[in-house]
Design a binder for these strands. Structure first.
Length: 286
DNA sequence: TCAGTCAAGGGGTTCG
DNA sequence: CGAACCCCTTGACTGA
């Protein structure tokens, strides 16, 4: 469980430092950095990253401040630390000196993705609350999240509850988002399958599970193979039908052969993480 | 600008 | 009764 390092001020908008480091607390900026976290606020959106994995950001936001920021698609500029700082304006209280510590350098090593997150996590503050109908914010999942979801879908058209929870945690999504994604993905898949089956003289019902056929042919045609490169996403458990998935629900996570990466471990291609490099160096803040 | 995509909303149904 | 499903719709976002 991650400790909460920010709290919301009484006005419901501001985010203030509430960490234990008095040196950091005394500063007039709204951010900090330790051997475990880098965090600060940008345009009222709390940014919290557990280096070297950026999954901490969305996990933290979802678990602690779900109303503060939602993913908003945008086209972030190519990563540049100076652009990053420029992006923080008008936030004069936040100035981070780059190129300092091993930990921060490692942060920056993954900052291309980080900046992508910055670009996506703009928008609503807690004060705005739940979006009203007509103001719906549609999340745009990252390529990595889609890869993870898509790869699992190629194996399992129906995901069990424990698997869903694990996948959601690993991808930094909410459990319900994974559930809805699979729901929507099955519809998309069924619609494409329907066209194939109709062309071959079959019917859509062949893709739906029922009492007579609890295991419908869920195999994919060649044209339904994933178009994304999924080689960098791990963790696949055996395929299951809805019947299997309900049994898995009853049996819980035990016996599930999913191999989970440790929380916070990087899953980006080509990235390496050496925990021995962690330190308690303080960020240079002016 | 506009058609297509897709996450999410919501109604209805099934099941344990 | 709650959870999960299917199906249709909505509307934010994207790319041509």
């Amino acid at each position: 469980m991650r400790r909460q390092v920010f709290r919301q001020a009484a006005d419901g908008k501001d985010l203030v430092w509430s960490g234990r480091n008095p040196a950091l607390r005394a500063c007039s900026f709204k951010g900090g950095y330790s051997n475990k976290y880098i965090f600060f606020s940008i345009s009222d959106n709390l940014v919290h990253v557990t280096p070297p994995s950026l999954l901490g950001l969305s996990t933290y936001l979802n678990s602690h401040s779900p109303s503060i920021a939602k993913p908003v698609a945008s086209r972030p500029p190519h990563f540049n630390p100076h652009l990053l700082l420029a992006h923080c304006r008008p936030q004069p209280y936040l100035t981070v000196s780059f190129g300092l510590t091993k930990c921060l350098r490692r942060c920056l090593a993954v900052s291309r993705q980080f900046f992508l997150y910055l670009g996506r996590f703009r928008g609503r503050t807690a004060a705005e609350g739940k979006p009203r109908r007509g103001m719906m914010r549609r999340a745009v999942f990252s390529d990595l999240q889609r890869k993870g979801l898509e790869r699992r879908f190629q194996i399992q058209k129906y995901i069990s509850k424990p698997d869903r929870k694990k996948l959601a945690e690993k991808l930094g999504l909410k459990d319900s988002q994974v559930k809805i994604w699979f729901q929507n993905r099955r519809m998309k898949w069924r619609n494409s399958k329907e066209r194939e089956l109709l062309a071959a003289g079959g019917s859509r019902e062949q893709t739906l599970p029922n009492k007579n056929n609890p295991h419908p042919d869920l195999s994919d045609a060649d044209g339904d193979k994933p178009k994304l490169d999924l080689t960098d996403v791990q963790d696949i458990s055996p395929a299951s039908s809805p019947v299997d998935h309900q049994r898995a629900d009853r049996e819980g996570a035990a016996g599930n052969a999913v191999s989970c990466m440790p929380v916070g471990y990087p899953i980006y291609e080509g990235m390496e993480y050496d925990s021995s490099n962690d330190s308690d160096e303080e960020i240079n803040v002016t």
